[in-house]
Design a protein around this nucleic acid. Sequence first.
DNA 1: TTGACAAGTGGAGACATCTCCGTTTATTAT
DNA 2: ATAATAAACGGAGATGTCTCCACTTGTCAA
Lengths: 202, 202
Amino acid sequence: MKDGKISFTHTERRDAAANRQRILDTAIRLFEQHGVEQVSMNQIATEAGIGPGTLYRRYRNKGELCLDLIKDNVVLFFEDIQAYLEHNHKEPPEQRLKGILWLFLRFRESKIQLLKGVEDSASTNRKKPGTRSPLYDELHGLLVDLFNEMNKETAAVRNNIFKADMLLEALKSDAYLFQREVRGYSLEEILELLYATFIAHR
Amino acid sequence: MKDGKISFTHTERRDAAANRQRILDTAIRLFEQHGVEQVSMNQIATEAGIGPGTLYRRYRNKGELCLDLIKDNVVLFFEDIQAYLEHNHKEPPEQRLKGILWLFLRFRESKIQLLKGVEDSASTNRKKPGTRSPLYDELHGLLVDLFNEMNKETAAVRNNIFKADMLLEALKSDAYLFQREVRGYSLEEILELLYATFIAHR
DNA sequence: TTGACAAGTGGAGACATCTCCGTTTATTAT
DNA sequence: ATAATAAACGGAGATGTCTCCACTTGTCAA
């Protein structure tokens, strides 16, 4: 066999793969050129030389397309977290939680437009009201574990699940951009404020 | 002069007022019949017997229409808060904060669809990224005052502004409905969890 | 090679939001 | 009354999301 292509063909036809690459390239170019929010799915389809139906066949909405564009970064992000936790497993959970928040804030900042794209169409477009992405669930699990480590009373688990939900709520595009642009805080200041609000609690 | 009508005319023509009432009646009927999310502005315009342009002339989007439908309730809600605070001004600030949260949760529950309508088009539709409604600012001010009362150190004001932002974030439709429908909590449970997360701290 | 079939395609069109602008109408000053 | 005028109107149409389905094309097995 030449390479992975043959087994790949079983799930994606070769012409389709080519189209997919053209979509991705076109989207990246247009997003960089005009900003994620300004670019419509129609525009992407037209510039990629395909019909709108073809585009929507692959990505059910703009959010899925955005997500595909950062999928690799998401994987790297979780690897970073893994590495960080291993290197710092002796630190107190408060510290490790803060470290994860910092990693997340930097990730969020680096992919700010695409993440907003993902969240926007997720909220407009969800069929099931409260469905969260696997990304959400994975982070949520990590946070809950750390909160549990901080407070060993089993009665607190419910509180910790809730607290993790609230913390993730605070990290959403809307809330984050509000702090960043209206309140005018820097990344570092937001980290401190999050720490004081959700972790320090003396 | 006959009465107040003349000065009123200066701000709203009589035929326009009639149309406005028809819009409101139609919207209420359709919202109750099909649910806020399912009803389009076009549908409202058609059923009210006016053109879409006329509807959009008065309400720049569905959110503004929803807001107009609960404006009276919002006023009542703030009066409730005022009365509550006056009757309980001797209680500790933690208690008063909890009381306000309870009033808010009940208000939110009673107008859940319309509030979601307001928030949805506010987030889709905002020209200025982080602009918050006056409703938001008013509540925010109340919360900050109570947090400040709980912690008199002036250095904490910044933290308290942030904490109030986070608390309001937690009370948004999205986060609230997630707790309600996915986590399966009752109003009372959400109140306790909010209290434990944002107020009790220690 | 070839035929069957699943995978992929494209574009018309259903619907929604929202704008633009020529036309109509209520009101007021004369 | 009537004319002037500002407010209100309505609907065509621009733009966007997303679906549907008749048609085309790769792939694989025979």
